[in-house]
Every structure is written in structure tokens, then in C-alpha cells.
Design a binder for these strands. Structure first.
Length: 658
RNA sequence: GCUGGCGUGGCGCAAUCGGUAGCGCACCUGUCUUGUAAACAGGUGGUUGAGAGUUCGAGUCUCUUCGCCAGCUCCA
């Protein structure tokens, strides 16, 4: 009779034999992949000690999923080294919805290679290999992994700063003892092994067939472009095949909503190659969208105390030295043009020009807050590889505004702006968001200003952000060179987040431009300027809204709000009269008087995602009515004309989605 | 910028081993037009992103270049 120990399992004490493993406590429950022992994640093979507090970690929990994916990454690495003897291992952590593994290989992976790798992985999984943990010393690890230069580098970095060494490197080497995980076949032979902190699922069988390799791409070793590029293979893994399918369906849905695709389908905008990358043109329908947004935002700014101004697209480059843009961010600005021996630059930001408006005459404290606003067209020389549809372009229409305030009232202005921004996003149907507070980090050469100034500015933003009650996520190092910022991250209809509005506290530019105002006591004081962008960029916002609504915009934004479809030619005139009455009320209408047959017209109306399709045939005309068809295919027949007009106008005015 | 993949009429796609560039939608013309996602017939349109090379012959192979997509890096 062996000695007994007492452990606490799921809150209740149990007496078990010595040498009992965590897995034995959950025998029979295949959803348990690892255990949390005294707060630490452990393999199921972990031998328990007296007094341990043990909890099951199931595969569908956040930790469980991460372990499953990390173990799948190991299987991938084993498969890669099977098929590519030359492959050297980088790191292979779990990530959101999946995992990746980096390899140094002679020849980069081709999409076809992924298929072959999946097959090899499935074979490994079916072999039912166990993951066995083995503690090694640094010296042993270095000897065993002599042929794995990247792993050796990680051994040297172990402890404390492993996570800094590379994102995800912490899963390879923890802060504590060094371990190697061996993949052991059923017959006890060792199939493969990898330096790894663990923990892992007990057996590859648990991965089943609910995994898939998604793509491969290069990634810099340890995240620095100074280092060599490794080939990264991305994959995904889920508890069940159904979960995998649901994930793939989600991706397919995102693809259907892709604004680049919808932009072409709905004739909103395009990117003519003749213009150059990142330079969109808006077609008439996209132009409606852009104008509606701009009109509304312009009106709202004026209501919030802003004054509308206008500034040029180019300037002598001296201005950007004054503002600090050129010394700090010259690589983001287009090269200078030589005009009459002077260097001119396309502007990347409107703030320096607004500062000149401020400086155009003496300012009094009575004028503050002085709020200037414009839709500034700015140009940024984004690297070609980062351009992406409307969300990352080289020409940006920025709803750029600057509030000049006294130091004392800066907090109140930030609050005013945050309330304004959130209200505006809500008006466009985005009402799920969190805040990010971007501050300076230790890389001080990227930022200008004293520690005291930064601390004071950050404090103002933090207080307002906290008081808003919204979730606040820190973003160290994400600040602009001239000051910290709050940004609003909005979630769209399928859960993706986008950086939208930003509010930045700037004490630097007022100083650099020598801005001042005369205070009540006659002294000269320096104002603080607060930059705020509500959409960030109109282009990006249009892209995000297109995806958020999948092209089915709320009525007030819809390029065409009402499309008339007569049941037959005879009713076109009758319907045309109804449309004329709507048009007189400012509604954007179209009549389909083409020679298509009725069902085809319905199909076209449906594909165009117009919010209201108005239909009239004999029954409607006889009753002085029209019939509605909505985007979901539902209908409302025989609606008296006056009622129909009222309903449509009301939907526009209330900015309703229908 | 880096790595990889991909570029065929406006859009979506096809073209075996290198052997006369096809199809659907859209568009144009005509006939048609009665209740909620595709009437019928005919027709216009491409030299395969661009340039060079290999070859008797290149959409298919090679190189250069432009662009798109994905990831990395970057994002005032």
C-alpha cells in the first residue's frame, strides 16, 4: 500500500496515491488537455505533490486552446523537418485563432508545400505521439541543439527578457528551468523534440483533423528588419472539426465584406494603376457616400464650436522643420520638389498650417478655446508593402482639427472632444469600442519634450479616458513624437477592431511655433494644442463602414436611397411621379426603366443593396399606392403614396438602418 | 522596403506536353415586358499587365519591370 497524498481538485479535497499524475485525476475526460496546478499550467503527466491545488483546463478554454495550438505548431515543425531536412527551427507560438512556426529553409514554402505538410502532420497526429517533458541544463541544451542556431540563441536569452527577444519567444524558453519536449511514438521511440517551455497536450491524437495550414510568408527573426528573414507558416487548430469550419466560414464572411471587392461591385471607388498605388478615385456612388459623411461631420464640428478653415497641400519644407515633422518622420513624407530654388513638400499633416492661422494675429485668452477644423488632404509616402485598399493609402482626407486651449482647460477640452468623437461614431452606427492610451516608451530619441511635459500630458489624457468608463488599453511607445494620444478602437459587425479617432495632447508644437496668447493679467502664455481626428481618414472610414455594413448602408448614407421598379412598362410613369415627389424632398432616387423583365429588375435591385425598392403595378396604381421591397426580401404592399414618402423621409432623417 | 504567391476583354473564370485565346455575367442591337433574385436571339470587345529573351511557334519557359494579394517591418 503506497503512501497517500491530499490534493484539492476543483475546490474539494481528495486523497490519492503518491505519484498520481494530474491527468489521472481527470481520467476519461478527453476535453481536459492540461491542468492548472497551484496556478501554473502543467502537463497532464505532471506528478502531483501533497497539498497541490489542481484544476482541469479544457480544450475550449482560452488556455486550453493556446496549448492545443502550440502543440499543433510542434507537429508542424516535426513535419517540416521530415520534408525539409535543412530546416532550422525558429519559434512557434500560439496566436489569436491559431499558431505559427518560423523556419530557416533553403527554399521558401510554396502553397502546394502546405498541402504536403498537412498530410505529413495528419500522419504524425494519427501516430498518437505523446509529448514528454525533459528538464535539461543550458549546457545540455546547447549540445543537443548544436544544429539549431536559433534555438541556441534563445537559450542564451533565457530568463526575464525572453519575451522581449521576440514576440512569442516566451513559449520556447520560460524564465525558470530549461526543458525539451520529446515526441514519443507508441513503441517508445523518440520521433522528434524541441526546446520548449510547454505545457503540451498529452497526445497528438487530440488534435484530430480540426487543423489547417493557412499560408506562409517571411518574417524577420526576432521581429527586426535588421535580422534575416525566416519562413513563417501560419496554421489554425480547433477543438472540433465543426469549430474549424465555423472559423473558416468567418473568414469567408470577412472576404465577402471586403471593401475592395464591394467597392468594385457597388461602383463606389477604384484604384487606377495609372495613378499609382494607394491613390483611390471615388466614383459617383462612392462620391455620394464621401460627401454625405463630410457634410455631416462638417456640420457637427461647427455645432461643437469649430471654425472651418482651409490650407494648401504643399508648403516650403522649412515649415516642417519648425513643426518637427521633418527631423522626426521624414521617411513618411514624399521627397521635396524644387520650385524656384526652394524645396517644397506635400503636407503629411495640417497642424503646422493651422498653427500659422493661430499666429496670424495676436490671440487673447478670451478667444480660447480656439478650434480650427478642415478636411485636409494629406500625403504620406507609405511603404508599398503596407498599402491596403482604402484602409492604408497615400492620399488621406483627414478630418483634422486643432483646439488651442490654456493648460488649465486642456482636460475639459479633451473630454469635450472625446464625447464629440464617440457621439459621431455612434451616429454612423459604430457603438462598440474601447480606448487605447498611447504613451512614450524608453526610446526617447523618437519623442521630443521633457519628462515632466510628457507626464503632465499623459496624466490629462489618462484621467479623461478613465472617467469615460470605457475599457482602456495601454500602448506604450505608440505616441506621436510630439505627445501622447487617446485612440478609439471600434469593433465592426464581425468583431474586427479598427483604429478610428485619435485625440493627441501636444505641448511641443506651440513651443516650436512660438504660439502665445495674452492672459487676463496681461502676461504672455503658451497655449496647448489638442489634435483630434474623428474618422482619422475619410478613406479608411468609408472602407470600414463598407465592411461593417457589408455594403448595405443606412438609408441616409446609401448612394441610391430609393429604386423604382415598375411591374411592367405601363406603370413606369405612375412610379416616376412618386419618385419625383421623393426627389423634391431631397431623396436620392432612380427609376429602372430599362427593358429588362420584372424579375430581372428585382434581382438587380437586390444586388445593388438599395435600401428601398418601390414597386408599382396595376393593384398599386388603382389604389394610389406603392409596394415596398426591403433588402432582406420582405415586402409591404399597397402602401398609400403619402405614407410611403413619410416613411422613407423619416428613415433618412433618423439615420435609420432598414 | 523585405519574402512568397498571382496578373488572360469592365467583372468572375477556362485554355492538356509550348501548337489558331474560349465561356458566363455586364455592354450594344432587335423581339419582348403584369407582382418580388436571371425572357429570347444576334453582336461588339482581349494578343494574355509592360518590355526583352529562348523557340519554327510563347498565355504557357527565362530575365527585367509595373501592379495586386498575404505576411513581416512600419504607421506622425
Amino acid at each position: 500500500m503506497s503512501a497517500q497524498i491530499t490534493v484539492t481538485v476543483a475546490g474539494s479535497e481528495r486523497s490519492v496515491a503518491e505519484q498520481t499524475t494530474a491527468g489521472e485525476l481527470f481520467e476519461g475526460d478527453r476535453t481536459v488537455v492540461v491542468a492548472r496546478v497551484n496556478g501554473q499550467l502543467r502537463d497532464l503527466f505532471h506528478v502531483l505533490a501533497d497539498g497541490d491545488v489542481v484544476e482541469a483546463v479544457t480544450v475550449d478554454s482560452e488556455d486550453g486552446l493556446a496549448v492545443l495550438r502550440h502543440s499543433t505548431a510542434h507537429v508542424l515543425a516535426q513535419a517540416v523537418q521530415q520534408l525539409r531536412a535543412d530546416a532550422k527551427l525558429g519559434i512557434g507560438p500560439p496566436i489569436r485563432d491559431g499558431f505559427y512556426y518560423d523556419f530557416d529553409v533553403e527554399t521558401p514554402f510554396h502553397p502546394d508545400d502546405l498541402k504536403a505538410l498537412e498530410k505529413a502532420m495528419q500522419k504524425i497526429i494519427n501516430e498518437g505521439q505523446t509529448f514528454a517533458r525533459r528538464v535539461v541544463t543550458d549546457a545540455e541544451a546547447l549540445e543537443e541543439l548544436a544544429h539549431e542556431p536559433y534555438k541556441c540563441e534563445l537559450v542564451g536569452l533565457k530568463g526575464g527578457n525572453a519575451e522581449e527577444a521576440a514576440e512569442g519567444a516566451g513559449v520556447e524558453v520560460g524564465a525558470g528551468e530549461l526543458t525539451i519536449y520529446d515526441n514519443v511514438r507508441r513503441d517508445g521511440t523518440r520521433a522528434w523534440g524541441d526546446l520548449c517551455r510547454g505545457p503540451h497536450i498529452p497526445n497528438t491524437k487530440l488534435i484530430g483533423n480540426a487543423f489547417k495550414l493557412m499560408r506562409s510568408a517571411a518574417a524577420y527573426w526576432r521581429g527586426s528588419e535588421k535580422n534575416p528573414q525566416l519562413q513563417r507558416v501560419y496554421g489554425t487548430a480547433w477543438p472540433t472539426k465543426d469549430d474549424l469550419k465555423a472559423y473558416l466560414d468567418r473568414l469567408a464572411e470577412a472576404e465577402r465584406r471586403d471593401h475592395r471587392r464591394l467597392g468594385a461591385e457597388l461602383d463606389l471607388f477604384s484604384f487606377p494603376t495609372e495613378l499609382g498605388p494607394g491613390l483611390p478615385v471615388f466614383h459617383p456612388k462612392g462620391g455620394v457616400l464621401k460627401r454625405e459623411m463630410e457634410d455631416y461631420v462638417r456640420a457637427r464640428h461647427i455645432e461643437e464650436g469649430f471654425q472651418y478653415v482651409g490650407t494648401p497641400h504643399i508648403s516650403k519644407e522649412e515649415l516642417f522643420f519648425t513643426s518637427g515633422h521633418l527631423p522626426y518622420y521624414s521617411q513618411g513624407m514624399f521627397p521635396a520638389m524644387d520650385v524656384d530654388g526652394q524645396h517644397y513638400r506635400l503636407k503629411a499633416m495640417s497642424c503646422p498650417m493651422h498653427n500659422l492661422i493661430y499666429k496670424a494675429r495676436q490671440r487673447s485668452y478670451r478667444e480660447l478655446p480656439l478650434r480650427l477644423f478642415e478636411f485636409g488632404t494629406v500625403y504620406r509616402d507609405e511603404k508599398s508593402g503596407v498599402l491596403q485598399g482604402l484602409t492604408r493609402v497615400r492620399m488621406i482626407t483627414q478630418d483634422d482639427s486643432h483646439s488651442y486651449v490654456t493648460k488649465e482647460t486642456a482636460g475639459a477640452e479633451v473630454k469635450h472632444l472625446l464625447d464629440f468623437v464617440l457621439g459621431l461614431l455612434k451616429d454612423f452606427g459604430l457603438d462598440d469600442y474601447y480606448l487605447e492610451l498611447s504613451t512614450r516608451d524608453d526610446a526617447k530619441d523618437k519623442f521630443i519634450g521633457s519628462d515632466e511635459q510628457w507626464a503632465a500630458a499623459t496624466k490629462v489624457l489618462e484621467e479623461v479616458a478613465t472617467a469615460s468608463g470605457l475599457d482602456l488599453v495601454p500602448d506604450p511607445g505608440g505616441a506621436a513624437y510630439y505627445g501622447p494620444k487617446i485612440s478609439v478602437q471600434a469593433r465592426d459587425a464581425i468583431g474586427r477592431t479598427w483604429q478610428m479617432s485619435t485625440i493627441q495632447y501636444d505641448f511641443n508644437q506651440p513651443e516650436r511655433f512660438g504660439l502665445e496668447y495674452q492672459a487676463a493679467d496681461g502676461s504672455r502664455e503658451q497655449p496647448v494644442m489638442i489634435h483630434s481626428a474623428k474618422f482619422g481618414s475619410i478613406e479608411r472610414f468609408i472602407g470600414v463602414l463598407t465592411e461593417h455594413y457589408a455594403g448595405a448602408f443606412p438609408v441616409w448614407l446609401s448612394p441610391v436611397q430609393v429604386l423604382g421598379v415598375p411591374v411592367a412598362e405601363d406603370y413606369a410613369d405612375y412610379l416616376g411621379e412618386v419618385l419625383d415627389r421623393l426627389k423634391a424632398k431631397g431623396v436620392r432616387v432612380e427609376l429602372d426603366d430599362s427593358d429588362d423583365r420584372f424579375p430581372k429588375k428585382i434581382r438587380n435591385a437586390s444586388k445593388s443593396k438599395v435600401p428601398f425598392t418601390l414597386i408599382a403595378g396595376e393593384e398599386d396604381r388603382a389604389a394610389g399606392a406603392v409596394s415596398f421591397r426591403f433588402r432582406d426580401g420582405s415586402q409591404k404592399n399597397g402602401v398609400p403614396i403619402d405614407d410611403a414618402i413619410d416613411e422613407i423621409v423619416a428613415a433618412i432623417e433618423s439615420r435609420a438602418q432598414v
